[in-house]
């Protein structure tokens, strides 16, 4: 039994190990570690979004809401309650899971209704947290500052661990019975119920997992940045990037979001962000092109040739 489990997980363990090595040693070869940190953040977000969209078909357009919630939970606990950073970071995913539970009823909606309602929910979080009336509690539009715990090396190392962790979670979704159940639900929820799959509970579990991943990413992002405005962690652009990166690589796979985020984020920086409109134009065209010609992502070029993609 153990051996078959290992066999199933092997590809995931190898992928995680490669990622740990690459991002562990990259700073010694390439000195822009904030770019590397952002790349890891987007790998995590693209993968976290994939856990929900790729395996259940629910596309969380407001995914950034969980990221921002995690970032703010960590920052505020350090600022207001002076909690040790490790504890404050642990609170990030907890806070985003609480938000996910509150938003749980959205899962009763189908497809696009879910996506747009989730988008609205993330905007509500943004408007509330960034509101001038909330200045005493959240810092409002003036943002938060936790430079007393600033530690770029430790936060970088923690993000490497999160990349590894989320790769293993995605492996579990891809290779376990649990993941097979999710796939069945995505195909047909009624038939899935009639296969004894607890559809509502499993969908909620995937939703919470996905939210926790984004919340933890937000917490580490807050630690790494240490000073930020609400816009930095709630901008819709973060959701959009995560969606595009995941789609580009191929959702429903483990490697897709990693490859998509790695390649496109590198491209994004190569083009340069001095002219954001050009990038917006390029990824707009990319999205349209992907949906029309490659809806399963670039990895489907391999799948079509009969190569099994992990």
């Amino acid at each position: 039994m153990r051996e078959t489990w290992f066999k199933r997980a092997r590809a995931g363990v190898i992928t995680a190990a490669v990622l740990a090595l690459v991002f562990g040693f990259a700073p010694t070869l390439y000195n822009n570690s904030s770019l590397l940190f952002m790349m890891m953040t987007y790998i995590v977000l693209a993968q976290g979004l994939n856990l929900l969209y790729g395996f259940t078909g629910y596309l969380p357009f407001g995914y950034v809401g969980f990221f921002g919630t995690g970032a703010y939970a960590t920052a505020l606990l350090v600022m207001k309650l002076h909690l040790p950073i490790a504890l404050a970071i642990a609170a990030g995913p907890v806070a985003s899971m609480v938000v996910a539970v509150v938003l749980g009823p959205l899962l009763r909606l189908s497809g696009a209704y879910f996506s747009i309602a989730n988008l609205a929910a993330s905007q509500i979080l943004f408007i509330v947290i960034g509101n001038p009336n909330m200045q005493d509690i959240t810092g409002g539009p003036y943002g938060v500052k936790i430079d007393q715990v600033y530690n770029p090396t430790a936060s970088y190392a923690a993000m490497v661990m999160l990349v590894v962790g989320v790769t293993l979670i995605a492996t579990f979704f891809r290779r376990s019975r649990f993941g097979q159940g999710l796939k069945a639900m995505a195909d047909d929820p009624v038939s899935a119920e009639m296969s004894a799959i607890p559809v509502v509970r499993m969908r909620l579990l995937a939703w919470l997992t996905s939210a926790a991943v984004a919340g933890l990413a937000g917490a580490l992002y807050a630690w790494n940045l240490s000073v930020f405005y609400p816009d930095a962690v709630f901008t819709l652009e973060i959701s959009v990037f995560a969606i595009v990166f995941a789609l580009f690589g191929g959702v429903g796979t483990v490697l897709g979001p990693i490859i998509g985020a790695g390649l496109l984020y590198a491209l994004y920086n190569a083009i340069g962000i001095s002219e954001p409109q050009y990038f917006q134009l390029i990824y707009g065209v990319l999205i349209v092109g992907l949906v029309m010609f490659l809806p399963e992502g670039i990895l489907s070029l391999l799948t079509r040739r009969g190569i099994n993609v992990f």
Partner: peptide, 9 residues
């Protein structure tokens, strides 16, 4: 998703 891309364009 496609119309979202179009919005960006």
């Amino acid at each position: 998703i496609l119309f979202f891309g179009l919005a960006q364009i």
